[in-house]
Simulated assay, not measured.
Amino acid sequence: MNEALSFALLAFTSFFTLINPLGTMPIFMTMTAELDQSNRTKTAKKASLVAFFTIIAFAFSGQLLFSFFGISVNSFKIVGGIIFFLMGMDMLQARLARMKVQDDQVKSYVNDISVTPLAIPMICGPGAMTNAIVLMEGADTLMKKIALITAIAVVMLLTYIILYSSSKIIKILGETGNTVMMRLMGLIVMVIAVEFFLSGLRPIVDEMFHA
């Protein structure tokens, strides 16, 4: 039992660090600034659920999927880095804050952004997927598997709560505060994107030179 609890704690801390819901919050705030409270809540809920089921799917079958399609984690990191960089560029130029959503397009907009980019790759990115695969391989007992799934569920619940709470932050900051915060976070997202890109590219380049 103690072994399962230790494994659950390891899973929780690693997933919370990799997913980093506090880092996702500014992007969520920016992309949902034009939505009302109910649609913002719906977006947070759907993004968290999609990310949860995606991580669980990768935990149980990720290694098979990667092998079947010939995809490497490093390639996934490169693509994720490009997506992050383009998103950070838009945030830095304050483009996302001016996104207006028509009433008849709200449902479609919520469905689109809750899956991509919020759920994938912001919440459920290459790091979280890889972590799920590695930890599932180490879960050699039923209790450890249950502990892993529970830890992922708790992290996703905390992610939802943090994203849901961002509505209050939007009201406190106001339009000017949101724009300033978005530009600052855009710069940070671009730095993260470069790190993602290089961490995926470096092993591929090393392999090419050694070959």
Rank of each mutant, 00 (worst) to 15 (best):
I161N: 07
I162Y: 00
I162P: 01
Y164L: 15
Y164H: 12
S166E: 09
S166V: 07
K168F: 08
K168Y: 10
K168Q: 14
I169D: 03
I169K: 06
I169F: 01
I169P: 03
I170M: 15
I172V: 13
L173H: 09
G174K: 00
G174T: 10
G174S: 04
G174Y: 08
E175R: 07
E175S: 10
T176Y: 12
T176M: 15
T176V: 15
T176L: 15
T176S: 15
T176C: 12
T176K: 14
T176Q: 14
G177E: 07
N178F: 01
N178C: 04
T179S: 10
T179W: 02
T179Q: 13
V180P: 02
V180T: 09
M181Q: 01
M181S: 07
M182K: 05
M182N: 12
R183F: 05
R183K: 08
L184W: 04
M185S: 14
G186Y: 06
G186S: 02
G186D: 03
L187Q: 06
I188M: 15
V189W: 02
V189A: 06
V189K: 05
V189S: 05
M190S: 00
V191A: 12
V191M: 09
A193I: 06
V194T: 11
V194P: 03
V194W: 02
V194L: 04
V194G: 04
E195W: 08
E195S: 13
F196E: 13
F196Y: 10
F196S: 10
F196G: 05
